[in-house]
């Protein structure tokens, strides 16, 4: 049997260009959004009321909520589902199979958003609401873990591989970063080791790595 040599370089180059273009457009949108937010609310004012980590956590919560809503819309309508370039060849049966996965992923994402929002907005001075926030986060974490377990059992090997790769690379980065960060704080270099900042850094690294692997596997 003869084997044809495939011209693989051209599509790879095109994908890379597309990825860089998406990053640049995303960066520009983010930049202009921050300017708009500054004009509307005043970022200086926001930083007086909240710590830098809390502002980032709240921003993440808004982004996760928006992603959750988009995924929820994709799970409810095949036309919206097919808007995603990687789903443009999807058949009706595929949409039916993906529906519950997308629905539960969206719920999981919104739970994540709620956790980040509670962590950002909880005030240590208010003892009553603090306890409620704590138990709220525990409940959300239990729910999120149950959904993740359910999704893992429905994933095929590609989805599982992307999850495993993302977790392994995130751990490598986070382990290194956290040890250096903690060392700097413990050794008196004047750097704070704030729990919310740790969560924000960890979440940021995870999502960046997960998006990278998702794109690399042609799933986005």
């Amino acid at each position: 049997m003869t084997i044809e040599q495939k011209p693989v370089d051209e599509p790879k180059k095109r994908n890379r260009t597309k990825f860089v273009l998406q990053m640049v457009v995303g960066g520009a949108i983010g930049w202009f959004s921050m300017i708009a937010l500054d004009r509307l609310v005043g970022l200086d004012q926001l930083f007086v009321v909240m710590s830098g980590a809390a502002v980032i956590a709240l921003t993440m919560a808004i982004i996760f909520c928006l992603i959750g809503l988009i995924v929820l819309a994709m799970s409810s309508n095949r036309t919206i589902f097919m808007l995603n370039q990687s789903n443009r060849n999807a058949e009706a049966s595929e949409f039916d199979n993906m529906k519950p996965l997308l629905f539960w992923s969206a719920i999981c994402m919104m739970m994540y958003a709620a956790i980040m929002a509670i962590l950002a907005l909880a005030n240590p001075a208010d003892q009553g609401p603090q306890l409620l926030s704590f138990w709220g986060i525990i409940a959300l974490m239990i729910g999120q873990t149950a959904i993740t377990w359910h999704l893992w059992n429905r994933y095929d090997e590609l989805y599982r591989d992307v999850t495993k790769e993302s977790c392994a690379v995130t751990f490598a980065f986070v382990e290194f970063g956290l040890i250096v960060w903690a060392a700097a704080a413990i050794c008196g270099l004047g750097i704070a080791f704030d729990p919310l900042a740790v969560i924000v850094a960890m979440t940021g690294v995870y999502w960046t790595v997960a998006i990278w692997f998702t794109v690399r596997r042609g799933m986005a």
């Binding site: 060849n89 590609l158 989805y159």
Partner: peptide
């Protein structure tokens, strides 16, 4: 498996 796996 999923169609994404075949595509990948």
């Amino acid at each position: 498996v999923s169609r994404q796996t075949i595509n990948a």
